[in-house]
């Protein structure tokens, strides 16, 4: 007994553990937290910036009144998805520079040269996911969710990052391994609506599934 006691770095007669022995564990714990929460994400994600500085805030405040003005659904062409506008749409206003920012001057030069801007997409979805903006329009969701009637933009922001409040272009964080961004939708985010009981079960309760077409069947979102 006496021998064993003598080999310990510190010991007390009353048998209580001493803090000095636990210190390396605390240091290791903090180091692991720093690596896990700060260093590893920095290594895993690379930051990319839009090729041309673009401010959603400026455009919403001074030019247009809704997201659909630029990100519209082209039903005539059979293109059902909202997408990125081409310079053809931008030229309506930007035939000549409206302001004096460098980015705009550069952009007007691109228009004159007939070039397209290679915008980066904040939320490109995986290949195995199907998404229809047409199905998630105010016509459908607004039937039961009147809160979106006053602010259609709030409906967009259910999934999309709110770029209106941000000054300039937000950087895009791309996962080096998967190629997805931090804004790419996770399945649980879709399920917040799709797995909601009223969407899964028939509202009329006649025993038939999927009256709303928004249920949680795998094929509703996967392809």
């Amino acid at each position: 007994m006496e021998e064993r006691n003598s080999t310990q770095a510190c010991s007390r007669d009353d048998g209580r553990p001493c803090l000095g022995a636990a210190a390396p564990f605390f240091v290791g714990f903090v180091a692991a937290l720093v690596v896990g929460w700060w260093i590893f994400p920095k290594v895993l994600f690379t930051e990319e910036t839009q090729p041309i500085e673009f401010s959603h805030k400026t455009h919403m405040e001074e030019a247009v009144d809704s997201c659909e003005y630029c990100h519209f659904e082209d039903t005539d062409a059979g293109l059902m998805f909202s997408g990125l506008p081409t310079t053809e749409q931008c030229v309506d206003c930007h035939m000549a520079p409206l302001g004096d920012t460098e980015a705009e001057l550069e952009f007007v030069e691109m228009i004159e040269a007939g070039e397209e801007v290679e915008w980066l997409v904040y939320q490109r979805q995986p290949d195995n996911a199907y998404f229809s903006h047409m199905a998630h329009s105010l016509d459908n969701c607004g039937m039961c969710h009147p809160e979106f009637e006053d602010s259609p933009q709030a409906l967009c922001n259910q999934c999309h990052p709110d770029l209106i409040e941000a000054e300039g272009s937000l950087p895009i964080e791309v996962n080096r391994l998967t190629g997805y961004t931090t804004e790419t939708m996770k399945m649980w985010e879709c399920e917040e609506c799709h797995a909601y009981p009223d969407h899964v079960y028939d509202l009329n309760d006649d025993g038939h599934l999927d009256a709303t077409d928004a249920n949680n069947g795998c094929h509703v979102c996967h392809k």
């Binding site: 039903t75 059902m80 199907y130 047409m134 199905a135 016509d139 009256a211 392809k223």
Partner: peptide, 21 residues
């Protein structure tokens, strides 16, 4: 995927009633 496209076409043309099959 053709079903999804057909449904989208119906939505685009307004040939449907929201909340119904």
């Amino acid at each position: 995927h053709r079903l999804m496209e057909a449904k989208d076409r119906a939505r685009a043309q307004g040939n449907y009633t929201p909340l119904e099959t």
